[in-house]
Amino acid sequence: MSSLKPVILIVEDEFLLRMDSVEVIEEAGFEVIPAGNADEAIAILTARSDIHLVFTDIQMPGSMDGLKLARFVRDRWPPIKIVATSGHVRAADKDLPEGSVFLPKPYREAELIATLRNLTGIA
């Protein structure tokens, strides 16, 4: 069941923001899998080998925030790209794994889609 569309895992604890992101990213031609927190995201990543990119909020409840999740993903699944976002904290380059992208909230949909296309190699 491999799709030609890149698969994006969205990790966002606020339901409405998560659903909004899913809609925007699907409309841009990606396959999207939503997760409510880092534990859910890790369970999905463990079960699926087709995820290209993790788009995560930094501030989340649960066992790890988005920065810890980003480092965990990079350690365990090095090829997966990471985009982190937050409206409250600004992530410096040293806070995220190399090659990751930080998008401050509120971001423009076009900016998000361009970033995702750039990282997944879709022109």
Rank of each mutant, 00 (worst) to 15 (best):
F55H: 09
R48A: 03
R74A: 02
R48E: 02
R76F: 06
T46F: 04
A70N: 13
A41L: 04
I42V: 05
M64I: 14
R74M: 01
A43P: 02
D65M: 10
D75S: 07
K68L: 09
A70T: 12
I82N: 00
G66H: 11
P61Y: 05
Q59G: 04
H52V: 11
T85N: 07
A43K: 11
K68G: 15
T56Q: 00
R74G: 00
W77T: 11
N37V: 05
I82E: 00
D57N: 02
V73Q: 01
E40W: 02
I51V: 14
I80M: 07
R74I: 06
A84E: 08
L45K: 08
H52T: 13
D39G: 01
L67N: 14
V73S: 01
S63N: 14
A70P: 13
L45R: 10
A84S: 08
W77Y: 00
R74D: 04
I82R: 08
P79M: 00
T56N: 02
L53P: 09
I44D: 00
S63L: 07
R74W: 03
F55T: 11
E40H: 04
F55Y: 08
D65H: 08
P78T: 03
S49P: 09
A84T: 15
P78H: 03
I44C: 06
G62D: 12
H52N: 15
P78M: 02
I58H: 09
Q59V: 15
D50F: 12
P79T: 10
R71F: 07
K81Q: 08
L69P: 12
V83H: 04
T85D: 07
K81Y: 04
I80D: 08
R76D: 04
D65Q: 12
R48Q: 08
P61F: 06
A43T: 13
A41V: 00
R71S: 10
R76E: 05
K81E: 03
P78Y: 06
A47Q: 08
I58L: 10
G62L: 05
I58V: 06
R76C: 05
F72V: 11
A84R: 10
E40I: 00
G66N: 13
N37M: 01
